[in-house]
């Protein structure tokens, strides 16, 4: 068994868990374990891991902190966070700081986890590593200004005003009040970054964001969260590969940093579309897809009477989900 599918590091403070993970993965992968973040980082320094799996809740260094360090020291390693305890703040931090590939909740399923690890290992081995994107207030020089639209989907226009103030000079900002308008905007404009609330006018936006990522992986998504539950965030990561979360109340400076970072990411993805494979997503369920289509339809009915709008919406749909 010299030829394994990849090199995996497992970190957990509970030795039983580590043993169990090792038993599960050792057939296919070369598995190393560490019982703390610090020990894990020492191993990262000596080895080139394809996948790093860490428990979130550990004494000393938290899983999200550890994965942030891993991302810094070994950018090509794909990061998976194990979590048994739903601490929303920690999960949001892990997304924004360490760009995790997947959340795996405990107890895991032995017929799923190896598959996820294999997928991650394959991506790590085959896909190029993107250059790190600086988190700065000013947009990086590499970002072309005003070419593509930043689309905000929100029923609260105050955030639109804020967005225009912060980045309006560098990029065109569009505003969609609801799902129908959002779809129409995709038809009308070349959207590079989408900033959305999880829920707009009572309609769940996460399905659209997930479907969008599935079909157009080079569009960067940023989600504004308010009372989002951990479950939803986890599914947005695993199925939507959301680039960043912005907690409410939105702080203007943070909005600016995140949007500029997202635009840099977008530029990176457009210039090298293969990087998007690093953000491969789990397919959303067929039911979710159907219910989304229904909502879009009803939104377009409610939105206007003219055939022009209908056409635009249909056109937007066509543009969005081109193959279908």
């Amino acid at each position: 068994m010299s030829q394994t599918k990849g090199k995996v590091l497992c970190v957990d403070d509970e030795p039983n868990i580590l043993r169990s993970l090792k038993w599960m993965l050792q057939k296919e992968f070369e598995v190393l374990t560490a019982t703390s973040g610090q020990a894990g980082l020492m191993l990262v320094a000596d080895h080139d891991f394809d996948v790093v799996i860490s428990d979130q809740r550990m004494p000393g260094m938290m899983g999200s902190e550890f994965l942030r360090e891993v991302r810094k020291r070994s950018p090509r390693s794909m990061r998976i966070l194990l979590t048994g305890y739903s601490d929303l703040q920690a999960i949001l931090r892990s997304v924004n700081e360490s760009e995790v590939f997947r959340f795996i909740s405990k107890p895991w399923k032995i017929d799923e986890l190896p598959g996820v690890v294999a997928e991650a290992a394959l991506i790590a081995k085959t896909q190029p590593v993107p250059a790190p994107i600086a988190e700065a207030e000013e947009a990086p020089a590499t970002v072309a200004t005003g070419v593509e639209t930043v689309l905000l989907v929100d029923d609260d226009s105050s955030i639109f005003d804020m967005l225009c103030r912060e980045v309006g000079e560098q990029v065109h900002v569009s505003f969609a009040h609801d799902l129908g308008e959002a779809v129409a905007a995709f038809d009308r404009e070349a959207v590079g970054v989408i900033v959305a609330e999880t829920r707009v006018k009572g309609i769940d936006m996460t399905r659209m964001l997930k479907l969008l990522k599935q079909e157009k992986p080079d569009i960067v998504t940023v989600v504004i969260t308010d009372k989002t539950d951990a479950e939803e965030v986890i599914s947005l990561i695993n199925q939507g590969q959301v680039y960043r979360f912005i907690p409410k109340p939105v702080i203007p400076a943070m909005l600016k940093i995140v949007v500029n970072s997202a635009r840099a990411k977008r530029t990176q993805l457009r210039n090298a579309p293969e990087i998007a494979h690093r953000h491969a997503v789990d397919k959303i369920s067929e039911e979710a897809r159907i219910s989304l289509a229904k909502d879009i339809e009803s939104a377009s009915h409610a939105g206007g009477s003219g055939g022009g709008l209908m056409d635009r919406v249909t056109g937007g749909l066509g543009h969005l989900f081109g193959s279908r």
Partner: peptide, 21 residues
């Protein structure tokens, strides 16, 4: 209850995995 659920989750996770394996 939350604490107990978490405490319970760790042995649950590995016993479940181990028994399956």
């Amino acid at each position: 209850v939350a604490g107990v659920a978490h405490q319970l989750n760790t042995p649950l996770a590995f016993t479940h995995s181990n028994v399956s394996m």
